[in-house]
């Protein structure tokens, strides 16, 4: 997955190589989040489908569904966090770093990693029950993740322009609220999914 991020970033770098001056901060930001989004979908889509039937059965006997979903969300959040931070490092290394307030940008990455991971874990659970799950995963997750992505991009834009942090509290609170809703729902709904 790390290689996936790095090579995607590198492809973007090469594509923009010709016209470096056209890479405005907005394009820079949007491109970064789109790379992160696709990485997230690819990384998390595997979290249910890659495990064998036997092992799922073993988990099923071993512990409660709540424990499974919470541990999956935590694990995926950590994976996303590592991927996003390394991705950001490499991205800033090759594409230049116009971010003024790096601390806020990292808060933004943290919130986005948790949010993406929790939405996509539940959706991956749903999609793994169906047959053609790669397509289904994309179709189900993109519309749901869109508001979160938009909020994140707005927050990241504030961080890039180095605006005062008090301006961004609205976005941070909204993102936290969305994360909370999604995690609660996954917690409540996953047991029904797990049974089948």
């Amino acid at each position: 997955m790390l290689l996936y991020v790095v090579s995607t970033v590198f492809v973007c770098y090469l594509s923009f190589n010709l016209r470096r001056n056209q890479l405005t901060p907005i394009v820079w930001n949007t491109l970064f989040w789109i790379i992160i989004l696709f990485t997230a979908v690819n990384a998390i889509a595997k979290s249910f489908s890659q495990e064998r039937y036997g092992r799922l059965l073993y988990y099923y006997n071993l512990c409660s569904p709540q424990a499974i979903i919470v541990s999956k969300i935590i694990y995926n959040s950590l994976v996303m966090l590592v991927l996003a931070v390394i991705g950001f490092g490499f991205y800033a290394f090759v594409m230049g770093n116009p971010v003024a307030d790096v601390g806020l940008y990292f808060i933004c990455i943290l919130l986005a990693a948790i949010g993406f991971a929790s939405v996509l874990t539940l959706v991956a659970g749903i999609a793994s029950k169906a047959e053609n799950n790669a397509t289904l995963m994309a179709v189900l997750s993109f519309p749901i993740i869109l508001p979160m992505l938009l909020m994140t991009i707005r927050l990241a834009k504030n961080a890039m322009d180095g605006l005062d942090r008090s301006i961004s509290t609205d976005e941070i609170i909204t993102l936290l609220a969305i994360d909370a809703i999604v995690i609660t729902l996954s917690f409540l709904l996953f047991p029904f999914l797990w049974r089948s």
Binding site: I126, K129, A130, L136, L140, I144, L185, L189, F192, L193
Partner: peptide, 22 residues
Amino acid sequence: LLRSSFEDDQRRARISAVYNIF
């Protein structure tokens, strides 16, 4: 689309109910 991708009635019902609430 999700509904159309299941064969079994009960399974489709359960999973699409989960998605619907979400």
